[in-house]
Each structure stands twice: as structure tokens, then as C-alpha cells.
């Protein structure tokens, strides 16, 4: 790979993708250790979509995410300690412990409220696009959602409104149903839709639509950059379907670390992928895939990878320590923040 701005960007992508991976691995450990309750959703296997897509946005842009939000929040630069603290319901969490894993939100980075209703993200993002259009400042809104969001009616209404009013919205559909076992086999729900080609849905409304390999960070970044450019110049909205095969750990009803703790040496020749997840390690793990491309740069790159991993593990370990040491919210604060002006409530 040639050195230059492209490679610098690849390293930036990998830094965030690895941060997300180590974060999610820690979330599983915290769940297994009983540090928080309730169901949760992991972003492992989709880092190659969220990171480059969000990297293509500017500071002034807005985003909307879903129940599978951890990766999006971190990709945009949220503090992993505050993210883990929120998942543990601590007072120092992004939402002060009021949201939990489903609702991680970082308003100062442009996130609209993180809806746990699958169609909520798409429809709120169209509102974000409406605001961008009213501002006339070239800003855009990106919705990052799963294929299941297209099972809910409000998504169709929102797509229609965005198309009618040419709103600057990038609909980033992360289709992670490929290879999913689905409810019928006792696994996590996967797409239940009559359409076998989801791109036909936005296309039927005249929305520019494109499909990309969601494991290929460079391809996602290129497609997203084009989409954003169209939206900024008033030629939106754009729909992108990023295909990401279902990570085995998200297959069961409750997540598990099916592929273990990611071993970056698999990307540098220091470890050889084997076993039933060999194909995942070799082809579909976006972190290993990008690390492998960068490792091709030679000995110096291999060292850099190793150093990056060490720094990332340290950062997440510190974040976990912070979260675990953080206090729970004072019970009586449950009555606060129903309204902006408490006195008027």
C-alpha cells in the first residue's frame, strides 16, 4: 500500500475500530461478571462500516443511532469511560445512568436522542435533516440503523418525507442479517421482510441508493463521502446499504464472545486462524482485515499495530476502572429532568 493521506486515514480508522472492539469485549465481560442487567447489543463485526462512515462527517453534522449504538458513539469520539459507566447505570455515564446500553447518547457530538424503537432512528434523522435544510449551512444528518428498521411503518413515512423535500439525510443501513440464524432457530431476531432487495425500497421513492461491502472500510468511506457530498449540495437524500455478515457472537439470543478476544497477531502472521470461525478471522472481521492491509507495510507497521493495540487495551482498561469506580445515581434524582424547567412541571 502506498504511503500518504490514504494510509494515514486507514490508521485513524483502525484506531477507532480497535477501540470499539476492545470496548465491546469489555462489555461482554462486564455482563458475564454481573455488573449490569438487561439485554444488550454489540457492534463487533460492523466496525468497518460505522467508523469510516462517521469519519466522513463534519463537526456541524447530526447523527441518529439505535439500540446497537456503542460503535457509533465511540466512532464519533465519545469518551469510552462515560460509555461504559452508562452501560453500568452510573451517575458519570453519558446519560447519567438514565439510558443504559440501549440509549447511549452524546448530544455535544451531534447525536439526536438514541431511540430504542427500531424505526425511531430513521424517522428522527429525517427531522435532523429537516433542521439542516432549514439552517441552510450545508450540514447533513446521518441515520445509522439495522435492516430490521425497515420492518416498521414510520421508516417508510420518513423515507417518503425525506425524498419529497430533498432533505440532506444519509440513510446508512447496516444489513447484518447475512448468515444470521434468526428467531426460528432460537437466535437473535433477524430480518423478517418480504423484500429480498432492500435497496428497491428507497429506489421506489427516487432516493439514490447504493450497496457497499460493509467490511471494507475504504469502500464504505468512499461511498459515504459521495453521499454526503450529494446531500450538502441539495441532492439528497442518499441510502447506503452496507453488507456486514452477522458476527457469530450476535447470533444467539444473548451475546457471547464467540470469536474470543481479538488477537491482532492473526493480522501480522504471529497467530494462525483455525477452528470453526476461521473464515471470519480471515475474511469478515473488519478489524483484522484492515490490520492485515496495514501490516503489509512491513516491520515498522507491525510494530505500530502492536503499540496501537497495547495503547487501546490500556485506554479501555482505564475506562472500565473509571466506570466500575463510579457512583450510582442518587435515587431521588429519578424525579429530575422530566422538563427543562423543573419549576414548570
Amino acid at each position: 500500500m502506498p504511503k500518504g493521506p490514504g494510509e494515514k486515514r486507514q490508521w485513524q480508522f483502525l484506531e477507532r475500530m480497535l477501540l470499539i472492539r476492545r470496548f465491546e469485549e469489555t462489555v461482554v465481560k462486564m455482563a458475564t461478571d454481573g455488573h449490569f442487567r438487561g439485554h444488550y447489543h454489540l457492534y463487533i463485526g460492523q466496525e468497518g462500516t460505522g467508523v469510516p462512515a462517521i469519519a466522513a462527517l463534519k463537526r456541524k453534522d447530526f447523527l441518529a443511532t439505535t439500540h446497537r449504538n456503542h460503535g457509533h458513539i465511540l466512532a464519533r469520539g465519545a469518551d469510552p469511560g462515560a460509555g461504559l459507566a452508562e452501560i453500568l447505570g452510573r451517575a458519570t455515564g453519558l446519560n447519567g445512568g438514565r439510558g443504559g446500553t440501549i440509549h447511549l447518547c452524546e448530544p455535544k457530538l451531534g447525536f439526536l436522542s438514541t431511540s430504542g424503537v427500531v424505526g425511531g432512528c430513521i424517522s428522527l434523522a429525517v427531522g435532523g435533516g429537516y433542521a439542516c435544510a432549514q439552517r441552510r449551512d450545508g450540514s447533513v444528518t446521518m441515520a445509522l440503523f439495522g435492516d430490521g428498521a425497515l420492518e416498521e411503518g414510520v421508516s417508510y413515512e420518513a423515507l417518503n418525507i425525506a425524498a419529497l423535500w430533498h432533505l440532506p439525510v444519509i440513510f446508512m443501513c447496516e444489513n447484518n442479517s447475512a448468515g444470521a440464524m434468526g428467531m426460528a432457530k432460537g437466535g437473535y431476531p433477524s430480518l423478517v421482510h418480504a423484500s429480498k432487495n432492500l435497496l428497491l425500497i428507497p429506489k421506489s421513492m427516487g432516493i439514490k441508493s447504493v450497496r457497499v461491502d460493509g467490511v471494507d472500510a475504504a469502500a464504505v468511506h468512499a461511498a459515504t463521502t459521495r453521499a454526503i457530498s450529494l446531500c450538502r449540495s441539495g441532492r439528497g437524500p442518499v441510502f447506503i446499504e452496507a453488507m456486514t455478515p452477522r458476527w457469530a457472537g450476535s447470533d444467539p439470543l444473548w451475546p457471547e464472545l464467540a470469536t474470543g478476544i481479538t488477537d491482532l497477531r492473526m493480522a501480522t502472521g504471529g497467530a494462525v486462524p483455525t477452528g470453526k470461525h476461521q473464515a471470519w478471522f480471515e475474511h469478515y472481521d473488519p478489524v483484522l482485515r484492515l490490520a492485515r492491509e496495514l501490516a503489509n507495510g512491513g516491520e515498522e507497521s507491525v510494530h505500530r499495530l502492536s503499540a496501537l493495540d497495547e495503547a487501546t487495551r490500556k485506554r479501555i482498561a482505564d475506562a472500565a476502572d473509571f466506570a466500575l469506580a463510579s457512583p450510582l445515581p442518587a435515587p431521588e434524582t429519578a424525579l429530575n429532568h422530566v422538563f427543562v424547567q423543573e419549576a414548570s412541571a
Partner: peptide, 16 residues
């Protein structure tokens, strides 16, 4: 599109 219109209002208000 009552749901869609309402959502657009909610999202737009969150965006200022």
C-alpha cells in the same frame, strides 16, 4: 404521515 411528520418535528427540535 402522522408518525413521520411527528418524528420530523421531534428530530428537528433536537437539532435546534
Amino acid at each position: 404521515s402522522e408518525a413521520g411528520n411527528a418524528a420530523v418535528g421531534v428530530g428537528a427540535s433536537m437539532a435546534g
